[in-house]
């Protein structure tokens, strides 16, 4: 399966996009959307890309359309949103490979440098530092991954992986 990097966007931006689409009866022209929210098109396309990767939206023609799972996400309470996002992140090849690398490591932990090397192997042409930060933020939000900046250690969150804690 092809490994795709995570676009450098936040969960709040993706949820905000879905809220916006919901207000617009589920669909908006991408060009008009960029104008309405005053985003650079590259920035907006990254948010849309992430929403697509998580199966919350799709982009037929020049539009972005909210999918049923996206609607379910924004109708959910704060805690439930995290669970939905966790399930979707787990389907991504990059996250699966990283989780496997952590599971194969000692005590389910990898230091930052080893993780960056691992990511470079999967995605040699990416901005690895930015990708690492994005993975940590989404991993924390979904309580899949934890990261301690003092010890520079990435680990499997006990919420999702109780046996690794």
């Amino acid at each position: 399966m092809q490994i795709e990097p995570l676009p450098e966007v936040s969960a709040s931006e993706v949820i905000g996009l879905l809220e916006y689409l919901d207000d617009e009866h589920g669909k908006e022209d991408i060009y008009k959307l960029a104008e309405a929210i005053q985003y650079e098109s590259g920035e907006l396309l990254s948010i849309i890309k992430m929403a697509e990767m998580l199966r919350f939206a799709e982009t037929p023609g020049g539009d972005v359309v909210i999918l049923d799972l996206g609607k379910k996400l924004i109708k959910s309470r704060i805690g439930q949103r995290k669970l939905i996002i966790r399930d979707q992140l787990k389907n991504l090849e990059l996250i699966q490979r990283l989780v496997k690398a952590l599971q194969n490591s000692e005590e389910g932990r990898l230091d930052r440098e080893s993780t960056l090397e691992e990511l470079s192997r999967f995605l040699p042409h990416e901005n690895i530092e930015g990708l690492f930060k994005t993975i940590v933020n989404w991993g924390r939000y979904a309580e899949l991954l934890g990261y301690n900046d003092d010890t520079q250690t990435l680990y499997l969150d006990e919420e999702s992986f109780p046996s690794c804690a």
Binding site: S10, A11, S12, E13, I78, G79, R81, K82, K133, V136, N137, G139, R140, Y141, A142, E143, G146, Y147, N148, D149, D150, D157, E159
Partner: peptide, 21 residues
């Protein structure tokens, strides 16, 4: 932390967070 959806970020420093977080 749980109420506002910050669980998972307990040990993060502000410099690691997006504006929303």
């Amino acid at each position: 932390i749980d109420k506002v959806g910050l669980d998972g970020f307990e040990e993060a420093y502000p410099r690691e967070l997006s504006g929303g977080m």
